[in-house]
Design a protein around this nucleic acid. Structure first.
Length: 746
RNA sequence: GGACGGUUAGCUCAGUUGGUUAGAGCGUUACAUUGACAUUGUAAAGGUCACUGGUUCGAGUCCAGUACCGUCCACCA
């Protein structure tokens, strides 16, 4: 053995040995209860970050522990296509080449992104291996695998039959730049200073940050308790505007805050969430003034064609000129919603597919809420439970269509009866980008077949008839739905699709899984949806326990982010300290599922620890050589001294305590127990005694026995070094440590 | 605005149903060291457990309030 432990040479060799031995694939044994855990699929186009290392460390610890205990243990890996995010990344690449998504048909674009992702996927896979993850590669799943697409389509069809999905006009978060809808939970909010305009509005003055939407106003609202405006309620007022006079109704509604501005609000149901809901309550007309491309339309009169920012500037200038602007508060601080790529969100009323989460007769969400409340799904740490419960209680219908190419296409066809109900974007036979109302395009010479083959996107009106593939009739024409599912619609079915729902052997044996281990930040996006889908499709929640680890923050205590420049690259730490030390350091940092700062000190400490146990092994081999004879394997027949009995007893206690802590998800405590015992009891005290013992055979035998047991205990935490030392030590068995038996309590 | 965490040694953090001298790692100081390991050993210094009040025989731990830090959610035009 070398004088110091060299992690670099060991790590690669050992992982190869495990893989070759096929030790990661469980044997299905119907007499035994399996232990199953699914790797939360990393984004296929991304890289592994420090949080992923923690996730892998904890999951590998769990699965290695159970594997050694003899449970058929499955840890199933995979990657997620991450629809919108990946497409945004890819479009940035295109931009560098001077291209955009409008240069390609949807098929071409999909194929290009596919290749782009394939390259990245390899990187992710090699990173997972490097971290020592004992995942079963034979069951590896990618969310765009053919069988997954099938399952997701089937789920959608079943939901359609059960009337749990519907297509409808609804106010959605739309990003004109990305050209797609986002769900509420996907948005970011940013505080910003914007001018607040106080404009003259008939007999009122009202405040708004969005004067450009005034062409879509269909009412003016005040609070019903507001005495100042009581006499106007229910009346119609005449407003002098930029495009002539308009008549608007004055409504009274509680959503109006009397204290804000002047207590009068213009109501624009087409472009504001509150206004939209008020519009529903008061049956107001929805007048869209901003189109899908983010530009003002003909309702804005001479401002048509301007984008929102230009429109606002122009409208403000004209209002001032006409004397319609009372004053402007330049320092108004408010928060705005941004999309994933950081663009401003434009609330829009457009047709979308939705999951009905709480129908009267058959609720999608209620059983999932109940499952946690009644404890059939248990969340650790317990205080995180409230986040889930509150979210489930408040959850509204879930928009699942995304106007992206990269994803699983919604398996719907629209019957083309009235050609004017369709808006299409396509590349024509000469490679030219065209778009417009279908009826118009056909009139000016485009062929229907040509449009289909060069299709980029279809937008059908709300009331167009739709069918599934099998419902198509020969004598009719159809256009496909070009929207894809929200990524979480497919990853929400991860426990089902990975295990081969509905009828594979794997599914029958391994479902429901044992533990879902993930970061708490995706409780709402992912965890809640998995529980809903799991119960909906199988009647059973997909897992019994949820363990939520904290977020690894940067050394300065803030969230890691590129813009702050405080991102910790795990590769550097692996390089310098070894995977084992990094994993162990992170695990001991995450005591209670709370967020924690990257524990650099602990990583260093565990590197020292790795060297310590390495040298303990080295010491034993040296002693053995000097002793000259084979050291007998430990047995109860040995003539033990008090100190031997004592350390043996201590080992028993450690095994017991480690089990106890692991069962309670107290990983850091379990790690510390082993650390303290090996270093301070075994190395500092017992080994020193061994040095002076006359009966070396007994002492060394006891020492080796305890040491080997410690290696077992430590293996789930620090798999590489323990496996390496194990291979060098004389022992009764030839089995690698990974499949050796977990120490027993006698 | 609402909620959830946090505030314990110089630094980063444990402290799981309240119970004897409050722990770890890193750092610091002194000493040691040729049967493994300087990525070492032995020993030591260092804490009115944020603050105020309360419950209790007993509070870092429970309750109420205050201050500050972090995170999430909701958003008012």
């Amino acid at each position: 053995m070398d004088k110091t432990y060299d992690h670099k040479s060991v790590e690669e060799k050992i992982y190869g040995m495990w893989a070759e031995g096929n030790y990661f694939s469980p044997q299905i044994d119907h007499k035994k209860k399996p232990f199953t855990i699914l790797l939360p699929p990393p984004n296929a186009s991304g890289r592994m970050h420090t949080g992923n290392v923690l996730m892998i460390a904890i999951e590998d610890l769990l699965v290695r522990w159970h594997r050694m205990k003899g449970d058929p243990s499955l840890w199933l890996p995979g990657t997620d296509h991450a629809g919108t995010e990946t497409q945004i990344t890819f479009e940035k690449e295109l931009k560098k080449q001077g291209k955009s998504r409008f240069n390609f048909t949807r098929r071409e674009l999909y194929e290009q992104i596919w290749d782009f992702v394939q390259n990245n996927k390899g990187l992710i896979e090699s990173q997972i291996k490097r971290m020592g993850a004992s995942v079963d590669w034979t069951r590896y799943t990618f969310t765009l695998d053919e069988k997954i697409i099938q399952t997701v389509h089937n789920t959608f069809k079943k939901m359609a039959k059960d009337q749990l999905v519907y297509r409808g006009n609804y106010m959605v978060n739309y990003c004109p730049k990305c050209g797609t809808t986002y769900a509420d939970v996907e948005l970011k909010h940013e505080e910003r200073k914007d001018p607040l305009y106080y404009m003259k509005y008939g007999p009122f003055i009202l405040a708004t940050v969005r004067p450009e939407t005034k062409f879509g106003d269909t009412a003016v609202a005040v609070n019903p308790k507001d005495k100042r405006y009581k006499k106007w309620v229910g009346q119609e007022i005449e407003v002098e505007g930029l495009n002539g006079k308009v008549n608007l109704k004055v409504i009274a509604d509680n959503f109006v805050d009397m204290a804000f501005g002047t207590g009068v609000v213009k109501v624009t149901p087409a472009h504001d969430k509150n206004d939209y809901e008020a519009g529903l309550r008061h049956k107001l007309e929805v007048k869209q003034v901003i189109n899908l491309d983010g530009r003002l339309n003909e309702r804005a009169g001479k401002y048509a064609g301007l984008n929102v920012a230009e429109g606002r500037k122009q409208v403000v200038a004209d209002l001032k000129e006409k004397g319609l602007m009372d004053h402007i508060d330049e320092n108004y601080l408010h928060t705005v919603a941004l999309c994933k790529a950081g663009h401003d969100i434009e609330p829009m009323v457009i047709p979308n597919w939705f999951v009905k989460v709480d129908a009267d007769e058959k609720s999608f969400k209620q059983p999932a809420l109940k499952a946690v409340k009644n404890g059939s799904v248990k969340i650790y740490p317990k205080w995180q439970e409230i986040k889930y419960i509150r979210w489930m209680e408040e959850m509204r219908d879930w928009p699942i269509s995304r106007q992206n190419v990269w994803g699983i296409q919604i398996p719907i066809w629209y019957e083309v009866e009235n050609e004017n109900q369709f808006y299409v974007w396509f590349i024509d036979k000469n490679g030219k980008y065209k778009y417009g109302v279908l009826g118009q395009l056909l009139k000016v010479g485009s062929e229907f077949e040509e449009i289909i083959s060069g299709l980029q996107r279809v937008s059908a009106s709300e009331n167009v008839k739709w069918v599934f593939e099998e419902g198509k009739k020969e004598n009719k024409r159809y256009l496909p739905e070009t929207d894809t599912f929200d990524t979480w619609f497919s990853s929400g079915q991860w426990p089902l699709v990975t295990l081969g729902y509905p009828d594979s052997e794997d599914f029958k044996y391994f479902y429901p899984t044992s533990i879902l281990e993930t970061g708490w930040e995706i409780i709402r996006l992912w965890v809640s949806r998995m529980i809903m889908f799991g119960i909906y499709l199988t009647g059973k929640p997909p897992f019994e326990y949820i363990y939520l680890h904290g977020i690894v923050r940067a050394l300065d205590g803030r969230k890691m982010s590129k813009s702050l420049g405080n991102v910790i690259n795990p590769e550097e730490y692996i390089e310098q300290y070894g995977v084992d030390a990094l994993r162990m350091g992170l695990i001991s940092g995450t005591a209670n599922g709370k967020d924690f700062n990257f524990p650099k000190d602990k990583v260093i400490a565990y590197k020292h620890f790795a060297n310590k146990i390495w040298n303990m092994g080295r010491f034993m081999l040296m002693m053995q050589e000097q002793y000259g004879k084979d050291i007998p394997f430990y047995s109860e027949e040995l003539k033990l001294k008090t100190e031997d009995k004592q350390i043996l007893k201590e080992l028993q206690k450690i095994i017991k305590d480690v089990n106890k802590e692991l069962e309670k998800f107290r990983f850091a405590d379990a790690a510390d127990l082993i650390y303290q015992f090996m270093w301070h009891s075994l190395a500092d005290k017992y080994i020193e005694l061994v040095k002076n013992r006359e009966d070396k055979d007994v002492a060394l035998s006891v020492l080796r026995h305890i040491y080997l047991n410690c290696l077992k205990l430590l293996h789930p935490f620090m798999p590489f070094i323990t496996e390496e030392i194990w291979s060098l030590m004389p022992k009764k068995t030839n089995l690698p440590l990974i499949i050796s038996s977990w120490p027993e309590v006698k």
